[in-house]
Each structure stands twice: as structure tokens, then as C-alpha cells.
Amino acid sequence: MILFIVLAVVSIAAAVGVIAAQNPIRSAMALVLNFLVLAVIYFSLNLHLLGISQVLIYTGLIMMLFLFCILLLNLSAPQMLTEPSYLKRWAAVLVTGSLLVVLFSQIVGPWLVPVPPNNTFAGVISNAPDDFGTAKAVGNALFNHWVYGFEIASLLLLVGIVGSILVAKRRG
């Protein structure tokens, strides 16, 4: 519980850092921290495979691509990366932040009420087996029952690769 609170605070701080930083590199670093903390939370949920995939895919590859692009822009046009500040932003923060209140009251709120009249989810405790996040369990499920989804995802990735090459190669 204490571990979770610490992790949650760090991850929220990192998330706020992403949008508070003026510099995209700082944002990217905060996001990397956030992803790593999320990976630790996944580990604490006994989800080994997804935790390590989080590190491998998000911090290892996706954020690396982000950094690559930021550095590339930094090299060719550093002035493009400064963030102009404007007043309307605070209004936007308020309006979007109110989303938090609405969603909280609707989604998480019912869990916090001690004995809600007709909430079947209340007081739910974890009943998952300990090994439900291991590579074996996930692989078994992925390649048996979800194999079509897996194939479609791989097709999507292939299309993504070809598409990104097309986008990047076309010269005006």
C-alpha cells in the first residue's frame, strides 16, 4: 500500500512534469519516468510480462523515437521547440480539469462508497492466480484464443512500417 502510494505520487508528478515542462526533452524525460513507474506498478500487480514489455516498448523504442525526432528538430530548427505561453491556457486547464471531477464521481466514486445499494463491484478483492501475468500464461492465451487479434495487430504494424516509410520518403 505504501509502495503504491509512493509510486502513484511519483507517476502523477512525472505526468504533470510532461505538460509543465517548457522544453520537449524535459517532457520526454518526465514521460520516461512515468512509464518506468507504471512498469513497477505492473510488476507489483504480478504482471511480469507486461511490465517488462512496458519498459521494452514504451521506454526503449517509442520514447527513443520521440527523442530522435526532438533531437532532429533541435538540430535543424531549435527555435521551433520553444513553447509560447498564452493566457487562454489556464482556462483550458480548468475546463479540461473539470473532466477529472466528472469522471471521478462517475467511475471511481462508487468504489469508495462503503455499501452501495446495488453495486456488485464494491469490496472486490483480487482473486487472480499468482502466475496470471507470466510469459507462459500470456503466451498461451495470446496464441490460442486471441490469435486472430494478434495477426491483425501484426498486419497493422506492417502497414504502419510501410506507411511511415512512404510518409518519410516522399519529397516535395
Partner: peptide, 19 residues
């Protein structure tokens, strides 16, 4: 939820498409 909302706020207020 908090992470999601923070992300949403970022999408609204930021001007740099990478961010």
C-alpha cells in the same frame, strides 16, 4: 484517471505536436 486527465489537459494546452 488522474494520469488520463493530465494527458488530456496536455493535449489541449500544448502547441508542440510532439508533446
Amino acid at each position: 484517471l488522474i494520469l488520463f486527465v493530465v494527458g488530456a489537459v496536455g493535449v489541449v494546452i500544448k502547441r508542440n505536436p510532439i508533446v
